[in-house]
């Protein structure tokens, strides 16, 4: 039987110590063997390792940073579309999601399908809106507050007990034990990710995570809970294990049902010593550890592609508990001409 032809575009080729999900997403789809696949990588920087992984990525185009706006991005996508008949595009960065969501209609006109959360879903799960999210959907969340200036820091002591978490609107999270540390983290985070900077109550417990996929109608297509076993100094999982945890799955179902979540998501949770689960973040995309879910029996990237193509997808019913992933680093040797091509022509 002939395999279905699929041209897939994906961002997040930064398979570094702070990895983007692009490469594991591509790997999951490629290894499924379901498609006659051509992969188009979309890269922001010239040293994203995925650019040079020619066994996984067939062609790479550099795209403008999200800060340049949706129209610059769409102009580039239109250029790429003239050369590659992209069927499905999977954005893998939080920071670019807004631009791709806004451009969803235009992408559709170009014949490019996505399967993204709605703007409302993206907005209401935002770290700065987590309090309201918790109240609306009946889930435990840490108390949080958005800061837009250093002047607000001294007042925090009236509302929070130290330590507190200081977080960027897209990435980065630090524990602060006093005002000075909040100031330091505020400056660092706002310089990198802009404002607001989010202050969150520090919830003591074990961090656990769930990867999930919602069909946009309130159904959970798949969900796999995981605990990080090895965490890098950037707080990223370098090893993790799948869990049997009905409470985590019930919470995931509740959130997906309540929000009618569309697309991939990662729930970052804290399990307190009393076994209470707090939602500390909802990432509106597939996480970089997605390949663990695939290894445990749920190929969520393939399910996402099928949903994007408008096909019916049967929910996964199980996964293997106790499956472990361990990341590793690997040195690739790159020819100067490849680096030159991406640096000078913006494609390779």
């Amino acid at each position: 039987m002939n395999k279905k032809k699929l041209i897939l575009a994906a961002t997040g080729l930064n398979n570094t110590d702070n990895p983007g999900p692009g490469i594991p997403v591509i790997r999951s789809i490629k290894e499924s063997g379901k498609y006659d696949l051509r992969v188009i990588g979309l890269a922001y920087e010239t040293l994203e390792p995925g650019i040079y992984m020619h066994d996984l990525v067939d062609k790479v185009y550099q795209v403008p940073y999200p800060s340049e706006g949706s129209s610059a991005l769409m102009e580039r996508i239109a250029y790429i579309r003239e050369r590659e008949k992209i069927d499905v595009l999977i954005p893998n960065f939080d920071a670019e999601l807004f631009s791709f969501m806004k451009a969803e209609k235009k992408l559709e006109e170009l014949g490019i399908r996505t399967f993204l959360p709605t703007l409302q879903q993206l907005e209401e799960r935002h770290k700065s809106n987590l309090d309201a999210f918790g109240r609306k959907y009946g889930v435990n969340v840490p108390k949080s507050k958005s800061l837009t200036s250093l002047a607000e820091i001294p007042k925090l002591r009236n509302e929070f007990d130290y330590p507190i978490m200081v977080k960027g609107k897209f990435y980065d999270a630090y524990v602060a034990y006093n005002e000075e540390q909040v100031q330091m983290h505020f400056n660092k985070i706002s310089a990198k990710w802009g404002l607001p900077v989010i202050i969150q109550e520090f919830v003591r417990g074990t961090e656990v995570n769930v990867i999930a996929l919602g069909d946009g109608k309130g159904n959970t297509i798949g969900a796999v809970p995981m605990r990080k076993q090895y965490i890098t100094d950037k707080g990223k999982a370098w090893g993790g294990i799948t869990l049997e945890n009905p409470d985590m799955l019930a919470l995931t179902d509740k959130i997906i049902r309540g929000t009618k979540w569309r697309g991939g998501m990662e729930l970052e949770l804290i399990r307190t010593p009393e076994n209470k689960l707090y939602v500390i973040e909802i990432n509106p995309r597939i996480p970089a550890w997605v390949y663990l879910a695939v290894g445990a029996g749920q190929n969520l990237p393939v399910a996402l592609v099928e949903l994007a193509l408008g096909n019916a997808v049967k929910p996964f019913e199980s996964y293997e508990v106790g499956k472990i992933f361990v990341r590793y680093s690997w040195d690739m040797i790159i020819d100067l001409k490849d680096f030159e091509a991406i640096s000078m022509k913006g494609e390779i």
Binding site: R227, Q229, G240, I241, L243, E244, N245, R271, G322
Partner: peptide, 18 residues
């Protein structure tokens, strides 16, 4: 109930991953 133990003395709690 779900604690697993192998004949090598490896004990696994699937609900916490410990």
């Amino acid at each position: 109930k779900n604690i697993a133990i192998s004949d090598t003395g490896f004990v696994f709690d699937p609900s916490t991953g410990e």
